[in-house]
Design a protein around this nucleic acid. Structure first.
Length: 310
DNA sequence: AAGGTGGACAACCGCATCCAT
DNA sequence: GATGGATGCGGTTGTCCACCT
């Protein structure tokens, strides 16, 4: 026996909200509040599902919402919290006044994920790709590693390399401007060559454990990009120069707060504390109440949140 | 100028959880 | 404790728009 639908789908409008609908909803809520979303559209004279009204209000119409660009500070907060709690957008949004979980989620998916990838940081684990590859290499035979490496990195790296217009040929001693055609005959060849370069860099990173000597190569001492650069010697210098933060695009170096303690990854291993308890303790409110954060990426230590007030 | 492509954001969907009865 | 409606949440899809070819 399925649940009854939250509204009669035949009778409701869908898609973009019109200014008139926004007005109706806003003025109704201003007068009556947001109790019982199922009744709100009916009483407000809207041909909308109650759920749709709730979403429109919470994500767009609420007067306390901020609209517009995310600041650097907000982005840092998102990245830091994401490294601790993962995709728990409502938890992250709760730390960003005026931002909704939908805002945060969209911003992460469209901007921040790519930004981190572009800096050689895996947006899921918040560890450098080179470190992840080394971890994988310890469990797989070399042929498997090569295939995995290609599958995992091809799209992302190609995207990155294409965007940055990196000229591999200029780094080849024999690749004078005139003779690049000797081994790159077409765009497809160039793509394949790029993939080969990426695979070479990964396999070197895997085969040379020295590159990952540091016990915490991804720690906050600036080793993040440096290790990625070192561990991927075959990567173009322009790529290995990425910093972990907006500075990577603005050449601000380590002065940017983005470069400090943003790549938390394995530093979160010890002294694990449940974040929601902490958040709940301070806020005295938590929309999800007893929802537990139990997986590895959801745990954090004080180390992870260095310089960040929870 | 027209069509294609990708980014940004709004909105929807289905499941999980809460909570009153 | 069981039940069912209300609400919250995260993932996904749709749409608009700017830019590129």
């Amino acid at each position: 026996m399925g649940r009854i639908p939250c509204c009669e789908k035949d009778n409701v409008e869908r898609g973009q909200w019109t200014p008139e609908e926004d007005n109706k909803l806003s003025s109704y809520i201003a007068q009556h509040g947001t109790r019982n979303w199922r009744l709100i559209p009916k009483n407000a004279g809207l041909q909308r599902c109650g759920k749709s009204c709730r979403l429109r209000w919470t994500n767009y119409l609420r007067p306390d919402l901020k609209h517009g660009q995310f600041s650097d500070a907000e982005e840092q907060t998102i990245v830091k919290l994401h490294s601790v709690v993962g995709n728990q957008w409502s938890l992250i949004a709760a730390r960003l006044p005026g931002r909704t979980d939908n805002d945060v989620k969209n911003h992460w998916n469209t901007k921040l994920k790519k930004k981190l990838s572009g800096m050689g940081i895996d947006p899921v684990t918040h560890k450098p790709f080179s470190h992840l590859m080394a971890e994988i290499a310890t469990t797989l035979a070399p042929p498997q590693v090569a295939h995995l490496a290609e599958a995992a990195f091809k799209d992302e790296m190609l995207h990155l390399l294409t965007k940055k217009r990196i000229d591999f040929q200029s780094q080849e001693p024999n690749a004078a401007p005139g003779n690049t055609a000797t081994y790159i005959n077409s765009k497809q060849d160039e793509k394949d060559y790029t993939i080969e370069k990426i695979k070479l860099g990964l396999s070197r990173a895997i085969q040379e454990p020295d590159m990952l000597q540091s016990t915490k190569p991804w720690d906050s001492t600036g080793a993040t990009s440096a290790n990625f650069a070192g561990a991927s010697s075959a990567f173009p210098a322009s790529m290995s120069g990425y910093q972990y933060g907006p500075s990577s695009f603005a050449n601000e170096g380590d002065r940017s707060p983005w470069s400090q303690s943003m790549c938390t990854g394995s530093t979160c291993g010890d002294q694990q504390v449940r974040l929601h308890e902490k958040l709940e303790g301070e806020n005295g409110e938590d929309s999800e109440g007893g929802k537990e954060i139990i997986n590895g990426s959801s745990m954090f230590s004080s180390d992870c949140l260095m310089g960040f007030t929870i």
